[in-house]
Design a protein around this nucleic acid. Sequence first.
DNA 1: TAAGCAAATCAGAACTATTCGCATCTGTGG
DNA 2: CCACAGATGCGAATAGTTCTGATTTGCTTA
Lengths: 136, 136
Amino acid sequence: MTLEDQELKKAGLKVTLPRVKILQILENCSDRHMTAEDIYQALRDSDGDVGIATVYRVLTQFEAAGLVERHNFDNGPAIYEIDRGEHHDHMVCTETGKVIEFHDAEIENLQERIAAEKGYQLVGHSLVLYVKPNNA
Amino acid sequence: MTLEDQELKKAGLKVTLPRVKILQILENCSDRHMTAEDIYQALRDSDGDVGIATVYRVLTQFEAAGLVERHNFDNGPAIYEIDRGEHHDHMVCTETGKVIEFHDAEIENLQERIAAEKGYQLVGHSLVLYVKPNNA
DNA sequence: TAAGCAAATCAGAACTATTCGCATCTGTGG
DNA sequence: CCACAGATGCGAATAGTTCTGATTTGCTTA
């Protein structure tokens, strides 16, 4: 019974091979930001008998269970990352495609205030900064 | 020579029927936020001989010319709105789908600062607040 | 530790949003 | 008013994602 197995159990999901492998891939990937296709390729490279439909289904379940977060940058494919419970937003370099995480309490507060001013409660937000290196 | 015609000319685009009609629809729509499909339906309802491919092509050209802005909320279809030159972000009500515009100079400044702190220049951003009514 | 059953998976089809290719048509400058 | 570049319409193509239906797998209980 590995750590991954326990996480899955806790989330009320059956411990199956595809789910364990996908969780491991997400935990071990270097930049923490992968598309469904990236994960599918990683599976294919190692063993290779998990369908792309399963990758999507599992990711959706992981998201519902709070194990991963899904983000949509601009109009490209969605990217997934392990949810460590530390909320953050993203900065994407338009030259290199590099993704940088950041957190700013002040911005978070302002968002709450803006919603409140209009008579609403904030239930979520999506903030992506598109940036380029200083010397470009 | 209508106002729409002049805008098109100024943007270096031939003044064709589809372009004029699409511009009018965008200028006259009540909530200012339409999908390509919405526009296609509006055209269909009135006259009806503009293909969906043309709608997309024209919207893309309008965007390049700075006449309209395109936004992607979550994972749904893109929405388009006339660009009045007044930058703003969006708040989307998760109950009603209503789109509210807002602008906050402080948030804009913070974004610049965050990019600078990481050694980058801000070239753009996407901020969407997902909200629900206070009484829900 | 095998049987049974619900849940999960696979492959491929379907779907949504968007773009492309190409034959035809239409503004615009001369 | 003519010619030709540029625009359009249609249908096919694409990318990303979800659904379907038949088969398999993992938990439960005996």
